[in-house]
Every structure is written in structure tokens, then in C-alpha cells.
Computed example of a mutant assay.
Amino acid sequence: MGSDVLPCYVVCDVSLSMADHIDELNTGLREFRGAVHADASVTDRVLCSLVGFGEEPRVVQRLYPLDQLAELPSPGPCAGTNFGPVFPFLRSVIDTDVQALERHRVRVHRPLVFFLSDGQPTDPVTWPAAFSSLTDPAWERRPRVVTFGLGDADEEALSRIGGFRTYLGRDGVRVGTALIASVMHVLSTSRPPDGRTLS
């Protein structure tokens, strides 16, 4: 592991409507893994976690080096796409992960969250308040958030969430390309932090 690392959280909608996109997402994850490993200067600096959500979020894979990056499971029977529960869940996961890294004296960049969905949130009234907890300026570990919309994704909602950048598959952008561009941009424009301060 490098002396400074970027924790990257790939957060994927795995509700039933995503069945047509799972192969595309897994191809994108493989492209992402391959591209990072092809660049020796960043291979040891990126750790990745995979989170799935539908009605409730769950960790598919904890924060590991990219060569251990898993694939997404097939969507379950849940029809709901609840955005709200994902955000406090992510905040808790990020806190736990960053604390563990800091105990090993690793300098940690502000995390990157890559949020993918193809649908409309089924909790349109409540998710914005939940999202604000993830991006609270007073929280030093608040992540940069990139969104990626597949199919008929709610562009307005994704634009509100993707404060760092929003990509849309219907514009011809590939998942792997967007992931690679986001990670490389963060690593090339942010300095590794000193002590407990996240860049």
C-alpha cells in the first residue's frame, strides 16, 4: 500500500430495473481495475469498496486493493430504489474505513464516491436531507461525489448528488472511462494530506 491512498466507493443501484445494465457495470469495473493496474504510479494508491443499494444499502466488498475488486451480483427482487438510506450508511462506512487506515499511519485523501443508478428515487421527499449528512462541510471526511446515469436515470436528482461531476451513459460515456477519469483527476489535483487532515 502506498504512503497516501484514495478510498473509492462504487455505489451501484441493484434494484430490479438494473438487470439490463449489470453486464455493462461489471465490464466497467474490469476496465477500471485494468487501467489503474497499468499505471504503476497509482496502483498502490487506490483502494476500492463496492456498495449495492435498492430498498436498503449493503457492502458487497469492503475497501480493498483494486486487484481484489469483486463484480456486482445480479439484481434481487426488490423494486424500490431508495437513495436516502445510502448516504448515512456511506458516512458510517467511510468513518470506519478512514479510521482504520489512519491507525496504520496511512495518509488518506478525501474519499471519492461514484454513484450509479438508472431510475427515479422512490423516496424523492426524504433523500435530500439524508444526502446533506454525507456532504456536510463540517465533516472532514466528506467525499467528492461523482454520479453516473444509466438508461432513463433521473438526471436532475443525479446532478444534485454529483457535486464533483455527473456523467450520463446516453451521452456515449462508458462506466469504466468515467471511473478512470474521476480517480485520475483526484490523484493529479489533490495533494496527500499531512497528519489527519484530508485533502
Rank of each mutant, 00 (worst) to 15 (best):
Arg62Ala: 09
Leu168Asn: 02
Asp20Leu: 10
Glu102Asn: 12
Val14Arg: 14
Asn26Leu: 14
Gly149Ala: 08
Val51Pro: 05
Leu168Tyr: 13
Leu66Gly: 13
Trp127Ile: 03
His104Val: 06
Asp154Pro: 01
Thr122Gln: 05
Gly34Trp: 00
His21Ala: 04
Leu72Lys: 12
Phe115Cys: 07
Asp118Thr: 07
Ala178Ser: 08
Leu72Tyr: 05
Gly172Trp: 06
His104Asn: 11
Ser188Cys: 05
Val42Thr: 15
Ser74Gly: 00
His109Cys: 04
Ser182Asn: 05
Thr189Cys: 06
Val186Asp: 03
Pro88Trp: 08
Thr189Leu: 06
Gly76Lys: 11
Leu179Thr: 04
Val59Phe: 01
Arg144Tyr: 10
Val98Thr: 13
Phe89Thr: 06
Pro88Leu: 14
Gly162Glu: 10
Leu47Arg: 15
Gly149Gln: 04
Gly149Asn: 04
Val60Trp: 02
Pro192Ser: 07
Arg142Lys: 13
Pro124Ala: 12
Pro75Gln: 07
Glu31Ala: 15
Ala19Ile: 10
Thr81Val: 13
Leu134Glu: 13
Gly28Glu: 06
Gln61Pro: 01
Gln99Cys: 13
Arg191Pro: 02
Phe131Trp: 13
Arg170Gly: 00
Ala153Ser: 13
Thr122Pro: 00
Ser15Gln: 09
Arg62Pro: 00
Glu102Cys: 02
Pro193Phe: 00
Ala79Met: 08
Ser199Gly: 07
Asp152Arg: 05
Ala100Tyr: 02
Glu31Gly: 02
Phe115Trp: 03
Ser74Gln: 15
Asp4Asn: 15
Asp123Phe: 10
Phe53Glu: 12
Arg110Glu: 08
Pro111Glu: 01
Gln68His: 14
Thr27Asn: 15
Pro77Gly: 02
Gly54Asp: 12
Arg170Asn: 12
Ala129Arg: 14
Ala153His: 03
Val145His: 00
Arg165Asn: 07
His109Gly: 04
Pro193Val: 01
Pro77Asp: 07
Val175Gln: 11
Ser41Ile: 02
Leu198Gly: 03
Gly52Cys: 12
Asn82Phe: 09
Gly169Ser: 14
Val175Lys: 14
Asp154Arg: 05
Thr166Leu: 01
Phe164Tyr: 15
Leu134Gln: 07
Ser132Ala: 09
Phe114Leu: 09
Glu140Val: 13
Ala153Phe: 02
His109Asn: 04
Arg160Trp: 05
Phe32Gln: 02
Ser188Phe: 00
Leu90Cys: 06
Ala100Gly: 05
Phe83Trp: 05
Asp13Val: 15
Asp136Leu: 12
Phe83Tyr: 15
Leu168Gly: 01
Arg30Ser: 06
Ile161Asn: 07
Ile94Met: 02
Leu158Asp: 01
Gly119Ile: 07
Arg165Cys: 14
Pro137Ile: 09
Ala79Asn: 09
Gly80Leu: 12
Gly172Tyr: 11
Gly172Gln: 09
Asp152Val: 00
Asp23Asn: 15
Phe164Glu: 15
Leu50Lys: 08
Asn26Pro: 03
Glu55Asp: 13
Met184Glu: 08
Ala79Glu: 08
Val146Gly: 01
Met184Tyr: 05
Leu66Lys: 05
His37Lys: 08
Met18Ile: 11
Leu50His: 09
Arg62Cys: 04
Arg191Asn: 14
